[in-house]
Amino acid sequence: MRAVTHDERAAAGLLAGLVAVLMAVTAFPILYSLWISLFAVNLRRPNRMPFVGLDNYIAVLSSPAFWGSVGRTALFSALAVAAILVIATLVALLLDQEFPGRRILSACLLIPWAIPSVVNGLMWKWIYDSNYGALNGLLLQLGFIGSATIWLGDSNRTLPLIANAFIWKEVPLAAILLLVTLKSIPADLYGAAAVDGAPAWRRFFAITLPALRPGFLLVTLYEAMMAVRHFDLFFLLTEGGPGGASDVVAWRIYVETFRNLSFGTGAAMSYILAIATLLMSYALIRGMARTL
């Protein structure tokens, strides 16, 4: 019995720093945010802060503009996650092979992961530039297009183009996670299949793809969370434009809070986003765990 209490006390001492950080910078803000979301806080009228109950939530949930941004967030995330899964699987399959130069390749793969998202935004904005950008330059030189295109100005292309920048930065991490899953497949499985004379493509569909499922779940979960909350590229590339074509939920929270200075609705929206993220993760885990 004494050992247990001693351990409890040791654990408490060792955990003090972590608990302080979690309380001060995570738990408290979350509760404070809930509190704020029940008031009509507007920094333009700092002395008046009437209690409005769930009015902020009702206002947000009954606004067509909000649901429009939810749809765009869903589209952006679906595009990004699907593309990341496909590209990262191909990359992981390549890096799973033994060949000269493999180590240099995997070191280079970390570069997009390490680049600050602001520079990622700057870089792709410059690539997409309508006058001097690399995309127009390349496509013109190759003869795919006849004249320079205003890429980000086309509201049908904005979301896919921003998703492309997001995908480029996220593929490395996803590929690393899938590669670990690949490495954990027992080699005997392949050996047995080779003895049975199964061709490479059948081995891929019968062994590799099913074995990758836990990796797919992890990557889908993580990348969906990252995509749904993503803000930086929207700020840097389009500021929600053109004409609201890239007005996603994260951007809307920013505008509502820091441009319209409506902290109450901003907090309500962040709360809705946080709860939606939790539900989404839960559903993904449940849904995919069942198919495993």
């Binding site: 995570t26 945010s33 946080a274 993220t277």
Partner: peptide
């Protein structure tokens, strides 16, 4: 803490 979006922390942290 890893599931909660950072943007959800921005408003309360800013006010504090």
């Amino acid at each position: 803490t890893r599931v909660i979006p950072d943007i959800a922390l921005v408003v309360p942290l800013f006010l504090v």
